[in-house]
Amino acid sequence: MKIEVWSDFVCPFCYIGKRRLEQTLEPFPHRENVEVVFRSFELDPNAKKETPFSIHEIIAQKYGMSVEEAKRANADIGKQAEAIGLTFRFETMKPTNTFDAHRLAQYAKEKGKLHEVVERLFYAYFTESKRISDRDVLLELAEAAGLGRKEAESVLDGEHYAEQVRKEEAMAAQLGIRGVPFFVLNGKYAISGAQPVEVFRQALEKVWMEEQQSSSLPSLAEEGKTCTDGNCSID
């Protein structure tokens, strides 16, 4: 089973959705047969790397609410995160552009370190209040995930993996994805948003059962003579 996850590293529900999916997969009896792939998606491709505005002020402006209302809304999201073991520090969060972070994730995917880098990027932004567009921050995260610093420097200093990021964003557009997180199971079923664990569990069981059923070829005739393991039916 393949699960593709479109998400952005500054999206709180993406981190919550990621953790809920992981909590669903942990007891899933066929976990070793499930491949999870994270895809690139930028909530705001035009976001600046640095802004004088807090996340509360940005949310207030975006949704036409007061800063106090934005703080309450973020506090509610923080409680949802806390319920699954995550810590969101909205007061010190550094809103930023995520394009380079996505390029680093694409590089990590090629090196077999995608999951380590994705988790570290989310944690750096939401818990450690790091600016994940900063070159030194990204290099620090790359090294911590087991990637070579010099190669990571080469990636970030050039335009490497930009095409891959844009390709996955184009895939999202073709699928009609306008919000994240967005989960696609086996290219057939979609789950939009940070759904409860029970929703993920039911989806996994449904797709797994269908996958097993589809692996059996329907017979167009009664069973005939066959040869198996070096022996042939001769009766």
Rank of each mutant, 00 (worst) to 15 (best):
Y123V: 12
M209W: 14
Y107N: 03
F99L: 14
A105C: 10
A172K: 01
E222T: 15
E210K: 10
Q106V: 08
V199M: 05
V155A: 08
T98E: 03
V197N: 11
L217C: 05
E22Y: 05
I3D: 06
L114G: 08
G146E: 13
G179C: 11
Q195L: 03
S219F: 13
F9K: 07
Q80A: 06
V37A: 08
L138Q: 03
K188Y: 09
G158C: 05
I59L: 15
R149V: 11
E4I: 02
S214W: 11
Q23C: 11
D100P: 13
C11H: 09
K150S: 12
F126G: 00
G224V: 13
S233V: 15
I77S: 03
I58Q: 02
K225N: 13
L156P: 10
R39Q: 14
C14W: 01
F99W: 10
T226Y: 12
K111C: 12
S215I: 01
G78Y: 04
A73M: 01
Q174Y: 11
W6Y: 08
T228L: 15
E198T: 15
K167L: 11
Y107M: 04
V10M: 05
G158D: 08
I59V: 12
F88C: 02
C14Y: 04
T127Y: 14
K62T: 03
G158R: 06
S215K: 13
F9P: 09
E128S: 13
V207S: 06
Y15W: 08
V207W: 01
T98D: 02
P12G: 04
V37I: 15
M209D: 09
K48F: 08
E140F: 03
E82R: 09
A221K: 03
L114M: 15
F53D: 10
F122A: 03
V207K: 03
S129P: 06
S40C: 10
S154N: 11
A162F: 01
D235L: 00
F13L: 03
E143N: 07
L43F: 00
L141V: 00
G78T: 00
L86R: 06
A170D: 10
A108W: 10
R135D: 13
G176I: 08
A83D: 14
F99G: 06
P45E: 10
Y107P: 06
L175K: 06
V117R: 02
V180Y: 02
S233G: 02
A81F: 12
K2Q: 15
L104P: 01
A203M: 13
N33W: 13
G148Y: 11
G158V: 07
D8A: 04
R19L: 10
S54R: 12
S54T: 12
T51D: 06
L204Y: 00
R166F: 09
F9H: 10
V137R: 05
A70K: 07
M1V: 09
D235T: 07
L139K: 11
T92W: 02
L185I: 07
